[in-house]
Design a protein around this nucleic acid. Structure first.
Length: 259
DNA sequence: ACCTATGTTGATAC
DNA sequence: GGTATCAACATAGG
């Protein structure tokens, strides 16, 4: 489920519970999650370092060490990853019974606690010195002018455009459907066909949806999300929701209101 | 049992 | 460069 709101909650968890602690050992033996690093490479770089900052842009987060002087640990939750610190999760939703094999990457501290990347699907990542320069501006921070210029162009469908992480960082499939529903815009609209009023409306609604999701616990708390299913109905007007594949992702929208 | 679906990203081809 | 498609992983559900 991780989109921007879930990642922000994970980042906040790290900031609250893991900063100021020194690394004793690192389990980086999952070669897939830590690719392209070799086994022991991340461990060698991080052992003995102190975690000093936890930052985020879109769905990517990273932890600085030794006041920014040490190596940077990049973390990505993929499609099913969670961050656990000393057994605490961000409490955004029930975690199923964890299996030890789901702990793909672990940082143990000198005080005995640990930070774990728990990921049933193994599509999360833990790498050194992640490249965040390819990401667009964070979806929660982007300015009005920047949003107009970056989103309002191209021939791709609007939904595809706002999910392009190089255009705007942080919007996933569910958040996209929620924001487009809030803004009453069709996911199929050609991105460059939006006027400034529509772009501004989308930005405002998107930011509101993000803030709400962070506060309430995740994107699944969105007002439209529970109606986002086959035979669902629009919670505003009652019209049947339409379903289609847009940009390779399953998409639901109110065909009556979203134009 | 078998098939389809799934919140992300990246590689590849046109 | 922009856009579309598929694959990577593993699990859940009809």
């Amino acid at each position: 489920m991780p989109e921007l709101p879930e990642v922000e909650r994970a980042r906040a968890l790290i900031a609250e519970r893991a900063l100021g602690r020194r690394i004793a050992t690192v389990d980086d033996t999952d070669a897939y999650v830590t690719r392209p690093h070799g086994p022991g490479e991340i461990s060698a770089a991080l052992t003995g370092r102190e975690l000093t900052a936890a930052k985020r842009r879109g769905k990517s987060m990273w932890i600085e060490t030794d006041g920014g002087e040490g190596p940077i640990l990049g973390l990505h939750l993929g499609m099913a990853g969670h961050i656990i610190v000393d057994g605490h999760a961000p409490s955004e939703r029930k975690l199923g019974p964890p299996k030890p094999v789901w702990d793909r990457f672990t940082v143990e501290f000198e005080d005995g606690g640990a930070l774990v990347l728990r990921d049933s699907r193994r599509l999360g990542r833990a790498i050194l010195d992640p490249r965040i320069d390819r990401l667009g501006p964070d979806a929660a921070e982007i300015s009005r002018d920047d949003f107009r210029a970056r989103v309002g162009r191209g021939t791709a469908p609007l939904k595809t455009r706002i999910m392009d992480q190089t255009v705007l960082a942080g919007v996933g499939n569910l958040l996209a459907d929620e924001a487009l529903w809030q803004a009453e815009l069709s996911p199929l609209r050609e991105a460059s066909s939006l006027d400034e009023e529509e772009l501004d409306r989308l930005r405002v609604r998107l930011r509101a949806a993000i803030r709400s999701a962070i506060a309430l616990g995740g994107v699944h708390t969105g007002e439209f999300i529970e109606h986002r299913k086959r035979d669902g109905h629009c919670p505003r007007c009652g019209a049947a929701v339409r379903r289609a594949t847009v940009g390779g992702r399953t998409t639901f929208w109110c065909a009556k209101e979203q134009v």
